[in-house]
Design a protein around this nucleic acid. Structure first.
Lengths: 367, 367
DNA sequence: CTGGTCTGGGAAAGCGCATTCCCACTGCAT
DNA sequence: ATGCAGTGGGAATGCGCTTTCCCAGACCAG
C-alpha cells in the first residue's frame, strides 16, 4: 500500500489536483472556504503526506540544511549542532548531518551530497586547515562550494573561511574572535599567575582554530611583557592533550629539587610554577588527567586553562578555567545567516560572536 | 546558473538521456566503454551533480535515514548519533536529524516529516514514555509509525518499543538490557558496600529507561537480601541529579552526630554510609556536584554510581562507577537492523547489546 | 442589455530522472 | 541467403507535485 498522493486526495474531494495543491500547501491563491474544507477532509481521511521530494523537484528547493562537523560525538560540535537544529526548526527545515573527521576531501564529498539533495544551505562547523597535505582537498572543497553557491546555495562557515573559497554573496563566515579571546585569557592569566612560566598545548600546525588561539595567547603574553610560551603540538583531542600532559608531567617532576613523592609540595624551592594553556577544553581535560595520573595535582603543581567552556565538562574538578564560547548561539547564527534571514533586517551582517574569559579553580593561586 | 541536468550531459555527449543515466548511475545495463567514457567526460566538464530528489522520485527511495533523539547535545545521544552516522555512511546514505525533547507529539511530527522525505528508515533513540500525559501523543506516534511501516518504511527503536505500536516486519527493537545490568550493578554494590544504605535517583515515573533501571536495581538488591531502596524522582538530566543531590546532602549532614564542619570525617559514629544510584551518568554527575557544593566528599561521605559510561565524563573525579553501554555500537546496530541488512544473514535478529558493570573510585570503600 | 474586469477553478506543462518498451543492428546457425 | 537470438541504444512514460496559462462565470459600470 503506497502512500496516497495529491491526485487521490483531489479526486476524493472532487476537485483538480491544482486546487488540492493550493489548499494543502501555502499558495498565493486561496481557494474558497467550502472547497478548502472538502480538500482538507479528504486529505485527512486518506492520511495524506505530501511527498517532499516531488515538492522539492517542482519548487527546486528542499527545505534541507546541510551540517558538516568533524565528529558529532564531540561535545563542541554537538553543542553547535543543537543550535543549528534549533534554528532549522524555526525555519521549518530539517538538518542533514555529515561527519568528516576534518578531512577536506570528505567535506567536499559532503558538500556534493548536499548539493545533490538540493539543500537550501550548508553550515560548515569544523575548523579549517591550511596544512600542505590538505591543499588539494581544500581546493576541491572550495571549487565545490563555489559551484554550490553559483547554483544559488547559501553556505555559512564557522570560524575561518575555507582556504581559496571565492567570495560570493551566498558565502557567509561567522567570525569567532579566537585570537582576541586567547589574548585576553593570556593577559588575565599573566596578572593572576605572575610567577608562572607558560606553555601551550596546541593542535597540529595549520589548524586555524588552534593557530589563532595560539597566536592570540602569545600576543597577550607579549603585551603583558612576558616571553613567548613554548608550544607543544599534539592532536586536537583528548588523547593529544593527554600525551602532551605526560610530557609536561615528566618535566615538572624533573625540575623539582626534592625527590617528588606523591604528596610532595609543588613549586618547592622557589622554582617558578607552570601554567598550561590547552587550545580547547577537551585537550585541557586530557592534559589534566595525565598530570593526575603522574601524581601531580592541579592547581598545586601546575595550573591549566582551556578554551570553549564545554557544558559537559563544567563539573570537572578542579573547575577548569577557560574561555566561554556561545556554541549553541554560534550554530544558530550560522544557520540564520545562511538562510538569508539575517540579510533581511538592515545591514545583513550577523550579530558578532562574543566570548568571555572565565577563570576558575584550575588556575587559582594556591593559598 | 542552474545546476546542469542529465539531459544536458547527454546532449553534450551526443547520446540519449537514457544512456547517460545508465552510465552515470549504477544500472543493470552497461553501455559500451567508448560511450561511457564520452558521457563521463561530458558530466565532468559540466560539473554534473545528479539531482537526488529527482532520483528519489523516480526510484521512490531517498537514501535518507531519519534519526530521532531528545537532544543532540546530550552526550548519550551524541554517542548514539555517531554510530548511526557511521552505519549510514557504510550504507551510502545520509542522516536526517530531528530533536524532540522526548515529546511524543514532536516525535510524531518528526516521523511524518521523515515520511514526507521518503526516508528509507527511521531510528528512534530517545527513551519511550508511558506517562499518562503522553498517552495521546504515543497513540499518534504509534499510528504514524504504523503508517510509515505499511508504506514500506523500516524503523528501529532503541530500548523499548513505542507504546501501542503494531508489530510489523518493518519494525525493529534494539533491546538494551537495562534491567539486568542494573541488577548486576546492585548486586556488585551490595557486595562491596555491605554497610551502606541505598538510595536511587530516578527520572520521572513512566520513562522506560529510568523505570527499567530502577526495577532492575531493586531486584538486584532483593536478590542480595537487601531491603528496597528509597527512590527520589527528578528530571532525567543534570539539573535533576543536582536537585536530588541537594536533598540527599541535607539528609546526610543531618544524620551526622557531630556538627559537621567541612573537614569532618564522614560516616562518623558508626552510622551507615549512603550509596547513591543515579539512573544515568549525567544525573550522577549532577548529584555529585550537589554533594560537593554542600561540602561533602565522595566516596568518603557518600558513594555514587551512574549508568551509561559517557565518554566525556570518564575524566571526572572521583572516577564514576557506572554501567558501560556500547552507545556507538547501539547506534550502528539500530541503523543496520533498520536497513534490512541484518535480516539478510540468517536469523535476522540483530546482535544483542551487552553492557558491563564498571566499578570505579566513586564507590570504593574508603581506606 | 452589453462590454468590461475580476474571481476562482481546471488543464497542462514541466521539474530531473529511471525505466520499460521498442527498434536497428550484429553475429551465428541453418 | 535466411532466420534467430542477442546486444546496445533511443523514445516515451511516469514518479508527485507546482505553476502558468486559460477559461467560465459573476459582477459592475455604462
Amino acid at each position: 500500500m503506497a502512500a496516497s498522493t495529491l491526485t487521490e486526495v483531489a479526486r476524493l474531494a472532487g476537485v483538480s489536483p491544482a486546487t488540492a495543491s493550493r489548499v494543502l500547501n501555502g499558495s498565493a491563491r486561496k481557494p474558497g472556504p467550502d472547497i478548502a474544507d472538502r480538500v482538507r477532509q479528504a486529505a485527512d481521511s486518506l492520511g495524506y503526506i505530501p511527498n517532499a521530494q516531488a515538492q522539492g523537484l517542482a519548487k527546486s528547493s528542499s527545505g534541507l540544511i546541510g551540517l558538516i562537523v568533524h565528529d558529532i560525538a564531540d561535545p563542541y560540535f554537538a553543542a553547535i549542532a543543537r543550535g543549528v537544529q534549533e534554528a532549522a526548526r524555526e525555519q521549518g527545515r530539517m538538518v542533514l548531518l555529515a561527519t568528516t573527521a576534518g578531512a577536506p576531501g570528505d567535506e567536499k564529498e559532503a558538500v556534493a551530497a548536499f548539493a545533490a539533495r538540493r539543500a537550501d544551505s550548508i553550515v560548515i562547523a569544523g575548523s579549517r586547515s591550511s596544512r600542505t597535505e590538505d591543499t588539494d582537498g581544500n581546493a576541491d572543497l572550495a571549487a565545490e562550494l563555489d559551484r554550490y553557491c553559483r547554483n544559488g546555495g547559501q553556505v555559512a562557515v564557522v570560524g575561518h573561511p575555507v582556504v581559496g573559497a571565492a567570495v560570493s554573496d551566498g558565502y557567509h563566515v561567522v567570525e569567532v574572535p579566537n585570537e582576541e579571546l586567547a589574548a585576553s585569557l593570556a593577559s588575565e592569566l599573566s596578572a593572576s599567575r605572575a610567577d608562572d612560566d607558560f606553555v601551550i598545548i596546541g593542535g597540529p600546525e595549520g589548524l586555524f582554530t588552534s593557530d589563532d588561539r595560539i597566536r592570540g595567547f602569545q600576543q597577550g603574553l607579549a603585551e603583558a611583557g612576558r616571553p613567548p610560551a613554548e608550544i607543544l603540538r599534539s592532536s586536537f583531542n583528548r588523547a593529544g592533550g593527554f600525551g602532551a600532559g605526560l610530557t609536561l608531567a615528566a618535566r615538572i617532576k624533573a625540575s623539582r629539587p626534592e625527590a617528588g613523592g606523591v604528596g610532595a609540595t609543588g613549586n618547592g624551592g622557589g622554582s617558578k610554577g607552570l601554567c598550561i594553556f590547552a587550545v580547547n577544553d577537551v585537550m585541557a581535560i586530557g592534559a589534566a588527567a595525565a598530570l593526575r595520573s603522574e601524581g601531580l595535582r592541579i592547581p598545586r603543581d601546575a595550573t591549566i586553562a582551556g578554551f570553549d567552556d564545554i557544558e559537559t565538562l563544567r563539573d570537572f574538578r578542579p573547575a577548569l578555567s577557560t574561555v566561554h564560547l556561545p556554541l549553541e548561539e554560534i550554530g544558530r547564527i550560522a544557520t540564520r545567516s545562511a538562510a538569508g534571514t539575517a540579510a533581511a533586517d538592515g545591514a545583513g551582517t550577523p550579530p558578532p560572536v562574543t566570548g568571555q574569559v572565565t577563570l576558575r579553580r584550575s588556575t587559582e593561586t594556591a593559598s
